[in-house]
Simulated assay, not measured.
Amino acid sequence: MKAVVVEAFGPADQLAVVERPDPEPRHGQVVIAVEAAGVGLVDILQRRGEFGFSEPGFIPGVEVAGRVQKVGEGVDRGLIGQRVFAQGSGGYAEQFVADAAGLVALPDPLSARNAVALGVNALVAHFSLRRAQVRPGEHVLVRGASGGIGLLAVKMALQLGATVTAVTRSTAADRLAELGIQNIVRRDRETEPAGPFDAVIDPVGGAAVPALLGRLAPNGRYVLNGGAAGFPPPEFGMALVQTFFNSLTFSTFSLNSVPAGEAGAAARAIFADAVRGALVPVVGPVFRLTEAAKAHLALEGGDAFGKIVLEP
């Protein structure tokens, strides 16, 4: 099979297309013929050597959609030929090994491309909003609103009946407005919004976190679910202490902390919402598997709108 590997930690040109032996499933596993693979920040961080693998030579990619091609011992052979969404490692390849217990069946109307455009990002947005306990009528700030997680967090918060302020770059603002998002802050032209906000959903992080904590309303909740701009400064906790009497809450969220069964149930509900039109996936640029380096450059450049997808 064709696969993309990280030859050495560093820039996007360290991604190389290679031939690897076709994988065989072990007990409890399946092999999926990949139709679409998601490209996300975690892939960038792993390629740079900042997260996950300790040595180069691995295949990046944590989510795919496709058809089950082979099953290992202990797995129902009836799964062969079924369309599924799966998480794991090694998604930038023509074939992907996954645990059968974590598979999520895809509804017939949902394409593989749309499945990964939702996938991990929709799950992170869903659980982040749940952790923030967003309620109807509350004011929610979403950073990185043109990216995969941010865009879906905006849509889901609106569905919950919240008033949403979306922070994004100027080049993406018009596209957000076309989706019905009215409160938009252009980060390269305007200062950060003053608030107060009942909740902040933040896939960006970085140096702005302390100031944004100061814009939370009493009993406000801040959920950091990504680090596109890096970690907050070490002293960011002082912003919480200095507003002690407002009883603010700061939490981090990683999808890795969610039990597989709970994540699977949430994914099935998300895919069902997409089929009935309640949640519309936004697919960004689509690249061939052999163009993985271009896909990474597009994500790092910050110009992509929606989810970047690789297709073998």
Rank of each mutant, 00 (worst) to 15 (best):
Ala278Met: 06
Leu299Asn: 13
Arg276Lys: 05
Lys294Ala: 08
Leu289Cys: 11
Gly264Ala: 11
Ala292Glu: 10
Arg268Gly: 05
His296Cys: 07
Glu262Tyr: 13
Leu289Arg: 03
Ala272Asp: 12
Asp273Tyr: 05
Val275Ser: 07
Ala292Thr: 10
Val283Pro: 02
Thr290Tyr: 02
Ala292Asn: 11
Ala293Met: 02
Gly277Ala: 10
Leu299Ile: 12
Glu300Asp: 07
Glu262Asp: 15
Ala263Phe: 08
Ala269Tyr: 01
Arg288Gln: 15
Ala293Trp: 02
Val275Arg: 09
Pro281Cys: 13
Val283Arg: 06
Gly284Ala: 01
Arg268Leu: 09
Arg268Ala: 12
His296Thr: 09
Ala269Cys: 08
Lys294Val: 04
Arg276Gln: 12
Ala293Gln: 07
Thr290Phe: 03
Arg288Asp: 15
Ala263Thr: 04
Val283Asp: 05
Ala263Trp: 12
Leu297Met: 12
Ala293Ile: 05
Ala265Arg: 14
Gly277Met: 06
Arg276Leu: 00
Pro285Tyr: 01
Leu297Lys: 10
Leu289Ser: 09
Arg276Cys: 07
Glu300Cys: 04
Gly277Gln: 14
Ala274Phe: 13
Phe271Met: 01
Ala295Thr: 06
Arg276Thr: 07
Ala266Met: 14
Gly277Tyr: 09
Thr290Leu: 01
Leu297Phe: 04
Val275Ile: 09
Val286Lys: 03
Gly264Leu: 03
Gly264Lys: 07
Ala266Gln: 08
Ala295Trp: 02
Thr290Trp: 05
Gly277Thr: 10
His296Arg: 07
Leu299Ser: 11
Val283Gln: 05
Arg268Phe: 06
Gly277Pro: 07
Thr290Asn: 11
His296Ile: 06
Asp273Arg: 15
Leu297Tyr: 00
Val282Met: 01
Val280Trp: 03
Val283Leu: 05
Gly261Ile: 13
Val275His: 02
Pro281Met: 05
Ala266Tyr: 00
Ile270His: 03
Ile270Arg: 02
Arg288Leu: 08
Glu291Cys: 03
Asp273Asn: 12
Leu299Lys: 12
Ala263Glu: 12
Leu279Met: 07
Ala278Val: 04
Leu279Tyr: 06
Ala295Glu: 09
Ala269Gly: 14
Leu299Thr: 08
Asp273Ala: 15
His296Phe: 11
Phe271Arg: 04
Gly284Tyr: 07
Glu291Trp: 06
Phe271Glu: 12
Val286Phe: 01
Ala266Gly: 10
Val282Ile: 13
Gly261Leu: 14
Phe271Trp: 09
Glu262Ile: 14
Val282His: 07
Gly264Tyr: 00
Leu279Arg: 06
Leu297Asp: 14
Ala295Phe: 04
Pro281Gly: 13
Glu262Asn: 15
Leu297Pro: 00
Glu291Thr: 12
Ala293Pro: 01
Ala263Met: 08
Gly264Ile: 03
Pro281Arg: 10
Val275Trp: 05
Ala269His: 11
Ala267Tyr: 04
Glu262Trp: 09
Glu300Asn: 02
Ala274His: 09
Glu291Asp: 15
Glu300His: 03
Arg288Val: 00
Val286Ile: 11
Gly264Pro: 04
Gly261Asp: 15
Arg268Met: 11
Lys294Ser: 13
Val275Glu: 11
Gly261Ala: 14
Val286Gln: 13
Arg276Phe: 00
Ile270Ser: 00
Pro285Gly: 06
Ala272Val: 04
Val282Tyr: 02
Gly264Arg: 11
